[in-house]
């Protein structure tokens, strides 16, 4: 049997996801060792894990370098990769929101300036409302943009809202709920169907509702 390649997002979410995989019998002890390896294999259950930047997981899966992976719905909505979305993992839950400084009042006579990492999501959201916007694409610390007056609002993921509050921003609109998804490469699902179907079934049993 071939190895099943699994891409996990680096960080807290990825560790939570790995715990779930371990619980369903797809563990890989090497991953717990503190070293600089990037790829971890378990010969017994034929799995190979690797950590990647969360936004890259979808690319690894779409191109078949990973057969399956776990990625946030935000990334799937933004990049629309051609892959299967097999499960809602019900973790990493947050919301895609529009937020603005508490003094903000929308003036529909003017083009709205929007700072975001999620250009496509923001564009689709405002296109639906017929609102004219100007997008400013940023790669991090989006909250700064309206504080410095660079934009009027931001479109970003909000988990607890603490960062927003500390920067005097508040959610003015909720766009869509986000959570982590189990995704699979389409061709892998044909040739490694048994392994992938088994993982999906077992994960389904441990996902907290």
């Amino acid at each position: 049997m071939d190895y099943l390649n699994i891409a996990l997002p680096k960080g807290r979410l990825g560790e939570k996801v790995y715990d779930m995989f371990e619980r369903i019998g797809y563990g890989c002890p090497a991953i717990r060792e503190k070293n600089r390896s990037l790829i971890f294999e378990n010969h017994e259950n034929k799995v190979r894990y690797f950590w990647s930047k969360p936004s890259d997981v979808a690319i690894y899966v779409e191109r078949g370098a990973a057969d399956i992976g776990v990625v946030g719905k935000d990334i799937l909505l933004e990049y629309e990769p051609d892959i299967y979305e097999l499960l809602d993992m019900n973790i990493g839950k947050c919301r895609m929101c529009v937020a603005a400084p508490d003094i903000f009042r929308d003036n529909p006579e003017k083009t709205l300036r929007v700072a975001t990492k999620f250009v496509n999501i923001a564009r689709a959201h405002y296109a639906k409302k017929g609102r004219d916007i100007e997008i400013c694409k940023l790669n991090g610390s989006i909250e700064i943009a309206p504080i410095l007056g660079m934009t009027d609002v931001i479109v970003d993921i909000v988990e607890t809202g603490t960062t927003l509050k500390e920067n005097n921003l508040e959610v003015i609109e909720s766009i869509i709920p986000i959570s982590a998804r189990l995704v699979a490469n389409k061709a892998s699902t044909k040739f490694k169907n048994e392994q992938i179907a088994d993982i999906r079934k077992r994960l389904q049993e441990v996902i907290e509702k």
């Binding site: 779409e62 078949g64 370098a65």
Partner: peptide, 9 residues
């Protein structure tokens, strides 16, 4: 149609 070792149809 899919063939093994090609990641898309």
């Amino acid at each position: 149609g899919y063939v093994e070792s090609v990641p898309c149809s």
